[in-house]
């Protein structure tokens, strides 16, 4: 190995970046060449000087800043954990309330449906069906008006339903208006009473105690139609009650 060859690899040699074979070759040259060895010594001394010159530690001011930075991050994390914990508790509580309301709502609805079904079935016992026997809505409406604090819907349901008369009954903790119709030999009770359910609710279709029920709200009125007709027929008939604007 010549001096030029060694000097071309001087820096990788100093930095230990040569292959083991190249290292050995370089060392064998250095052992014999004082000039190249002097270069190596020079640069090793330069490295040592640099290390001695560089700050060995971060300044006190920086250490303080880093300390504060970490403290803030820790507090932030802690606070975040509190917030997360609080949010989780709130979510659980909210879920509980929703479930309770949902269940309560379902129970309320369920009780109402049972009530309405029972009302229809009870009406078919002897002497309970009709209080006012007339197919004239002009007679029924004022009759309801005298007995009830609200104005129920009174009307006919197409040509296939015969209005038999009206009745007062008790349901959902109040006196309610019932219109009785007959459709193809089946009795239909149409129950109307004021409700605090507002807005559009999906039409409820259900069966209780062997009778079909269809419930909906219209304005401030709750409607229930009950019959031993098939559910789909009952729903079809229920759409004959015109919307409040009509």
């Amino acid at each position: 190995m010549t001096c030029d060859e060694l000097l071309s690899r001087l820096h990788p040699y100093l930095d230990g970046e040569l292959t083991p074979d190249e290292m050995r070759t370089a060392e064998s040259h250095l052992a014999l060449c004082a000039s190249c060895q002097a270069q190596v010594t020079r640069y090793r001394a330069l490295g040592a000087t640099l290390r001695a010159t560089m700050p060995a530690r971060a300044s006190a001011a920086l250490q303080q800043r880093a300390h504060l930075l970490l403290r803030d991050a820790r507090q932030h994390t802690k606070r975040r954990r509190w917030v997360t914990a609080f949010a989780a508790c709130a979510a659980v509580a909210l879920l509980g309330v929703c479930l309770w309301q949902f269940t309560a709502g379902r129970e309320g609805e369920d009780a109402e449906l049972r009530d309405v079904a029972a009302l229809h079935l009870r009406s078919q016992l002897p002497g309970h069906l009709i209080d006012l026997t007339t197919s004239d809505t002009a007679v029924i409406a004022p009759w309801f008006g005298r007995q009830l604090p609200y104005t129920p819907w009174t009307g006919v349901l197409g040509r296939e339903c015969v209005l038999l008369g009206a009745r007062l009954d008790y349901c959902d903790h109040q006196r309610v208006a019932v219109l009785v119709y007959r459709h193809a030999g089946h009795l239909i009770s149409l129950i109307t009473y004021p409700s605090d359910r507002r807005g559009d609710h999906p039409r409820i279709l259900d069966t209780r105690d062997g009778v079909a029920l269809c419930g909906w709200t219209q304005g401030h009125l709750q409607f229930y139609m009950v019959s031993d007709l098939a559910q789909d027929v009952l729903e079809h008939i229920s759409h004959m009650v015109p919307p409040p604007s009509a």
Partner: peptide, 18 residues
Amino acid sequence: NLERFEREIMPHLDGAYA
């Protein structure tokens, strides 16, 4: 991540400063 930062990154503060 904070613990990882303290454990793995913070020891190199001196080198970072240099």
